[in-house]
Nucleic acid binder design. Structure first.
Lengths: 346, 346
DNA sequence: TTGAAAGCGCTAACAA
DNA sequence: TTGTTAGCGCTTTCAA
């Protein structure tokens, strides 16, 4: 029985020797750098293929790039984020970059640890999705490594941002419900416990968009917000609270689909039917919103496009670190399904 | 306006000078290596705190460990995988390891590319979830870097495995349906297009478990399998085909929840009701199976536990590369909900 | 127990 | 256009 020989790693030196050129030449060919003749490129590529050479990211990182981009996701179980991620990876598919995801970073502390670990690993750039860190910290990070922030309604000269227009998204829902005849429209919001950066977070902007739209329709006296979280449990307790009101709302706008699911559960338990007794709308147009049994009216914020734009901005910024920062704001659309209808006749 | 000074990175040399010790000493303290006095440890830790030193993973990787573990996930949008991932990260939470996820590796080619990129980055160990690569390739990889394979029913001397007992899981479903009085029980399977490693894949084992259980109940003449994919569309077309049978089944066992969702859609479109006309069961007990509107009977394979076990085995193997390989097989449980009931009276 | 010094594999400044 | 060479920040023998 042959024992597998633990062979030494093939290095750039082996390639150079095999191709009868210098290591510099190999390095240049690898990086498509200036100053290599076609003949040399061929020789080097041949040697690389012959030897099965693969560059060591660690050694590269010590001097130059690692060809690694990091993406931080707050909650991988929320089906909206995979969609954004697909936009990112798809955009980078035939680039030299490898995307690595740092999972599970709930809260400011875990988030800081995750970002640090990406910096320690000399990543060439990072995309932070809906981070909760204070603005100052994000700017500090962006000063160290090219950074794109997704979801925060912030403006900075050193990082780029991509976000959905949450004001417009909330307005789409309110407009739709008003046009159906609703007046008593309530909102379930996510309230961040950590007080920093409050007004930049998408959840807060959605609540603000709801308020603005209600006022625009002359319904300021109907504004009714319960503060819970964007979770199924949060939606459930929020809806319970709303259903206990002396005059209960005829429609509930939950700031996230998963919260809308909790609300639907509470409504069904209360013996009420949707949309005949009460309408429900969500946000994110996640996979399950389209299930026929669910059929949830929801705001689609084009997660795929958000991811693709973030990836593009990041690559651009890596190439030109001094270029002006961009802020991309994408317009959401409303997907009307079966959970919204006219209010019950009174 | 002060321009942010791009200050030089704090290195081990700075720490050594500040603490008045050698760089060797700092390195030892960092790695909890043998041969450091408490006094020295204190001095070094103090200097690290004073200077805000963080080790460079690239430099470390060039000689020793990178303290990075890679996890490859086939499809991040499938809500079962986040659960496994949470098990992994939770288990490693207070270790020195950082978990990084390589997303989107559909197909053998993309998978190989992803694995290579993890090796290039000198990861200390990798967890491959439901890989489709041929066995020989997995063993080759495991020879280079400590590897744990999740979901494959394989046995190897050089890699560890963690898997759900899919034979038992399929039996749980068939037994449940038979006990309700069903005889015509059909199965929707996922058929891998790439012919390698077929019999090791969880989907194939589930189909085999279905066959075995049917035979055990004396129902071999009722065995009815349609081959599609574990997707919503796959479940939809699979169910359509089954509903068109001259004598249609009274129960459908889909090998994955997401396929069960497609089947439910097809059934509802055909004007049939669940479970009165036909019962449906899934596999994975994903989040949406518990939604009251869905209420899908499903097999729970304890994804969290699978992830935690995989992380434990990987850390053990990194510490003892020569230890005997382990195969962990976890027993699934059945979660009975509203989509299964007695067959219609004939 | 502590430290000096030689690399790890690559990139980039500089020389030819 | 090509090659020589000095590091990048760390780990790891090997001496002291």
């Amino acid at each position: 029985m042959t024992r597998p020989v633990q062979q030494r790693r093939v290095t750039i030196v082996d390639v150079a020797r095999h191709a009868q050129v210098s290591t510099t030449a190999v390095s240049k060919v690898l990086r498509n750098a200036y100053g290599t003749s076609p003949a040399m490129r061929d020789k080097v590529h041949q040697a690389i293929a012959d030897l099965g050479y693969r560059p060591s990211a660690a050694a590269r990182g010590l001097r130059g790039q690692t060809y690694t981009l990091g993406v931080m996701v707050p909650d991988i179980a929320n089906p909206f984020f995979p969609e954004v991620l697909n936009g990112v990876t798809n955009r980078l598919n035939d680039s030299d970059y490898q995307v690595l995801l740092a999972p599970g970073c709930a809260g400011e502390k875990a988030e800081a640890k995750t970002i640090d670990s990406m910096i320690d690993r000399s990543m060439d750039g990072i995309i932070l999705i809906a981070p909760v860190s204070p603005r100052a910290h994000l700017e500090h990070v962006a000063g160290i490594v090219p950074t794109v922030i997704v979801g925060r309604h912030a403006r900075s000269t050193i990082f780029d941002t991509v976000a959905d227009d949450d004001i417009a998204g909330a307005a789409l829902v309110v407009d739709h419900l008003v046009s159906l005849g609703h007046r008593r429209i309530a909102h379930i919001e996510h309230l961040e416990t950590e007080p920093s950066c409050i007004e930049e977070m998408p959840n807060m902007v959605r609540a603000e968009g709801y308020r603005l739209a209600m006022r625009r329709h002359g319904l300021e006296d109907q504004i009714d917000i319960v503060s819970t979280t964007y979770t199924q449990a949060g939606g459930y307790t929020g809806a319970r609270e709303l259903l206990d009101r002396p005059r209960r709302p005829t429609a509930i706008f939950a700031g996230a689909d998963i919260a809308a699911m909790g609300a639907l559960e509470a409504i069904s338990q209360a013996g009420l039917s949707v949309p005949d007794d009460i309408s429900v709308a969500g946000y994110d147009n996640t996979t399950f919103a389209a299930f026929s049994q669910v059929s949830l009216t929801s705001v689609d914020q084009a997660g795929w496009q958000i991811g693709a734009d973030a990836a593009r901005l990041l690559v651009e910024r890596i190439a030109h670190r001094e270029r002006r920062s961009s802020q991309i704001k994408l317009s959401p659309t409303l997907v009307v399904r079966g959970t919204t209808g006219p209010p019950p006749a009174r």
